[in-house]
Design a protein around this nucleic acid. Sequence first.
DNA 1: ATTCTTTTAATTGTCAAACCTTTTTCATTT
DNA 2: AAATGAAAAAGGTTTGACAATTAAAAGAAT
Lengths: 256, 256
Amino acid sequence: MALHYDEIVRTGLSKQVADLIRAAILEGRLQVDERLPSEDELSRRFGISRPTVREALKVLAAQNLIRSRRGPTGGTFVNRPDLDAAGRAIAEASTLLVGVGTFGVDEIVTARIETEAICCRLAAANRSDEDLARLEAEIVIQRDEGLTDEAFCASDVRFHRAIVTASGNGPLRLMMHTVIESFIPVTNMLIFGEHERRRSVGSHARVLEAIAARDAERAAQEIRGHLEGMRAVLIQALDRRASRAVAGAAEGGETE
Amino acid sequence: MALHYDEIVRTGLSKQVADLIRAAILEGRLQVDERLPSEDELSRRFGISRPTVREALKVLAAQNLIRSRRGPTGGTFVNRPDLDAAGRAIAEASTLLVGVGTFGVDEIVTARIETEAICCRLAAANRSDEDLARLEAEIVIQRDEGLTDEAFCASDVRFHRAIVTASGNGPLRLMMHTVIESFIPVTNMLIFGEHERRRSVGSHARVLEAIAARDAERAAQEIRGHLEGMRAVLIQALDRRASRAVAGAAEGGETE
DNA sequence: ATTCTTTTAATTGTCAAACCTTTTTCATTT
DNA sequence: AAATGAAAAAGGTTTGACAATTAAAAGAAT
């Protein structure tokens, strides 16, 4: 008789259970905010122990699919997918990749230029007065000479985030989490300094002006110019760093 | 005396441990492929029980940060972040959002148009002969009239994926997972049919031709035209569906 | 000496049963 | 009527054990 290899379980029980419940949620067999059976009940239904059930639930909770609360009205509930949670997950995944140096600075800047140019174009078309106010407010902050580098960078991130929001395009906003939360910070880390800050604020102001005037092409051109300038500075900074490292090595100093 | 409410622990133990280990990995205090202490050891070090440690590890495993193996040389190891795993995580998060109808079809198509136009431009500049062969192969598949709708859509996804790959930009490829794995499938689901298929293949062929000729602008224009055409068909399809629903309701039929 | 097999030990995976903590509900007391 | 407190329900945690897996060491056969 032919053996049914399928029946040989190769994955752990907790994973199987997690997959079953996940599938039920994704296929809509479990509605949003619906309560799952208690952990005790689940362990009885699946014929496995409670700790194993809990491992499965923890995995699903880590993926923002469910939440748990204690108490008589507590239990485990299906989460409504929301943009912020998804955005955080996306940002975490890409930050991790960027952190280990998966990408070159040059291609990161290219990706920034192209995607942010889109956002500027759409923002020029769709921006509300509120959006303008948000952008304006960040520029005011950035003009403050006494700002720390960290605070300036944070404001820079908020400025670019505000552009994305002004585009009024939800799907694009979701995608741009990668740029906003990972690519911008990694490029900003390298270009501190008074001079660059002033140049940046100038570019920001021109972008805002173009968006306010609903001039899509100019807005796109301004952000392109802004980021191309940054690319040049970045490459210079990396060159300096590289030559310093070479010089240091030549002097016999170990870099680590 | 003012009470220090902060010191009251509000988060669960397993979450605290997960956060600690995650921070250690993100800050590089745990290197890639480094082995963590055994679960037993961890439970002793943190002063908590093994099941609780396991819950924490499961959460990290769900985030692709670690992997576990049994046996004498087994244990828990730090994962190297890789593009595919991150891409899958991103795709999952966005698929979930798209699935519950967070976005309108119109803004999804807009996002597709703008981002895919970028990819076409870059692909025209950077494509290799290999890239061209991959695109060509998909078009050959799509010309087969006997193809099922599912197979056609799968090939369509592969075609667009190949364009992204041809762009040669890693960061962009990461971002485009959202488009490729979520936005394309959801737009394709609605436009089956012989006529649309033939139109699509025609557009694909023209895009390929422009990319092969390294004509960035033409490639971008072709994909724009392709997707704008799809937008029109989609809106028609949705209108038909809506009016059918209204008609059905008027006849006294309950839609659910 | 080499190769095959068996044993062994380390480690994750699972289980069972209890206890702890939080939170709501509801009865009791003031 | 309001404050208090007990009970119950649910997730959170512990303990201690056993099962399954797997690499390496030990032993047996060639």
